[in-house]
Design a protein around this nucleic acid. Structure first.
Lengths: 217, 217
DNA sequence: AAGATTATTTAGATTTGTCTAAACTTTTAA
DNA sequence: TTAAAAGTTTAGACAAATCTAAATAATCTT
């Protein structure tokens, strides 16, 4: 598997987890920041390698082998994120770009030794589960802040949008994994949410609310 | 710089350190395990980028920028080797292939944080010096076992041939960095050397002797 | 259900890094 | 001091991954 192929598998995996339909060419092009025609070419190659099943005009979905491969890449990505944050003291918004590179290093031994070195972490710094050596992982039950109940208290367990700007926003406002958040008020007019944490009140936009994941306490 | 370009720079750097002449196309082809014509193509590209100076039929040499770049790659390679050996408990012969991949990760922050995490090591597991952030490193004075004086005692500080087979041979015979070695006898007939370390005597071939580096105690 | 719009694929071109085979330099050796 | 050998470069081709533009299929609209 080349670097480009790995990135496509990861992107398909990601999109499959967002809706239960087959992944469309355009959606994949958007995710990969490339053109639809390039996507068609690559999909055909992956289909030849039996990593995806593909019906022209119908979209693409991962085969068993393709999913297993994608999970391995995801495992590596998330392990490296933990390493960068915990061992090298990277900040939340800095880990992603470097992990994007490190996830392609090919050495099962490296991955497993790294896992061990980190103490077999179950989740990464964004709150996403880390698959184990066999590709198994716990589904973490989380609701977005946008879906949270007024008056209830939650724990921040993850973020969806991994853009630097969003992570910097969270850093700047001192929201991180493990922060306890109480929902003070949900404003129906613009779907903004007033929350309270560390004895500070903050109003966040709908956009932020949708990308911040919580679990009930 | 692409991955291929980085590998060429590193190879040229390596060859420049073995003899003071310009690096020939064939030597580079041998080092890169590729064809001379491919080398010529790549050299031209590197010359365009001012990473090497190149005169057709005369060979190639690194420019200042090229050398600085090569040293950065070498720095990363050697830091990762230390990481793999010290933190992840890889064995001597396993580190090289993985470090070959890791050395291409592009993030100055990662390199410097890794350096710090490892305690700013001065040498890698093969006894080669690790350049600091500014590319400076101490020249380590070492003689090969083949050139060592009969009767003298030395410290093992490095290896030249990084082939797996050689490293496995050393592992199997319990020779590692830091091993104290006394030269018992040099056999003029076949240039083999009888050495003593950890109270064990061992005869090594000329080939081994040439690839094992020592420093006087 | 036909035309318009949107989504997708195909055809042909481009870049990177490689190759083989042929041409050309340089070096070696008679 | 030339002819052969060795070393190097050029020309032309190829695979990977991408692009633009054109063609084709699917879906929406009325």
């Amino acid at each position: 598997m080349t670097l480009a192929e790995e990135n496509y598998l990861k992107a398909i995996y990601h999109l499959e987890n967002q809706s239960s339909n087959d992944v469309s060419t355009n959606a994949l092009a958007e995710e990969m920041q490339t053109k639809a025609s390039s996507v068609t070419d690559m999909i055909k190659k992956l289909a030849e390698k039996n990593m995806v099943s593909y019906i022209p005009y119908q979209g693409v979905s991962l085969s068993k082998a393709g999913r297993a491969y994608a999970v391995k890449v995801v495992r590596k990505h998330r392990l490296w994120e933990v390493f960068l944050l915990e061992k090298l003291n990277f900040s939340w918004d800095e880990v992603h770009d470097v992990a994007e590179q490190l996830e392609h290093i090919k050495s099962e031994k490296l991955t497993d030794k790294l896992d061990e070195f980190l103490g077999f972490p179950k989740v990464d710094p964004h709150g996403d589960p880390i698959p184990d050596k066999d590709g198994n992982f716990e589904k973490i039950d989380k609701t977005s802040l946008a879906d949270a109940k007024e008056g209830s208290t939650y724990l921040c367990v993850g973020v969806d949008d991994s853009s630097n700007d969003f992570l910097k926003y969270l850093d700047a406002n001192h929201i991180s994994l493990g922060t306890t958040i109480k929902i003070i008020h949900k404003e129906p007019f613009d779907n903004s949410v007033k929350i309270k944490f560390n004895n500070v009140e903050l109003v966040v936009s709908e956009n932020v609310a949708k990308n911040l994941f919580l679990t009930a306490v």
